[in-house]
Amino acid sequence: MRYRIISSILLSLIMLNAIQTLAAQPSVTINPTNPSPQSTLTFTVALSEENILGAWLEIQECNGNKGICYPKQNLSMEEKSPGTYQLSVTLQHSDATYMQYTIKLDTPNGWEEYFKETKVTLSQGNNGGSSNNKNNAPGFEIIGLIAASVIITMLLRRRR
């Protein structure tokens, strides 16, 4: 009976600690979700932790094909509302194939890191993959315009 009480107390303490840890973990959203090289993306960090003195984003761009990483950027995030920090970043390198970021929080207990070196693959298409011309041959519209103008010209000549 004693052991059951002790084990249930221990279990509840462990669960309580886990819940608190999860609750303290910030969440990050990146818009657009499929960024491309040299695009502008917005990082939004939502915190449940209070007494945050500041939030910083560390970001580095790399080219995995050449095995190169470019210098890290350390950028201060703006508090949009209590507990929500945001930053827009424009990627700098046209040949970057991925980026890595880390969220750093300045707390009364010191610096805390989250999402350490989280890797995001950069899409190598047009405008972060939002192009409407993916399924069409390039220049298709121009060919149509030229054909239409030729036909109209021929029709006009016939009338004359």
Partner: peptide, 11 residues
């Protein structure tokens, strides 16, 4: 190099 650089780690 730097510690955070993945290619540097492989290097």
């Amino acid at each position: 190099w730097a510690t955070w650089c993945n290619p540097c780690r492989y290097q």
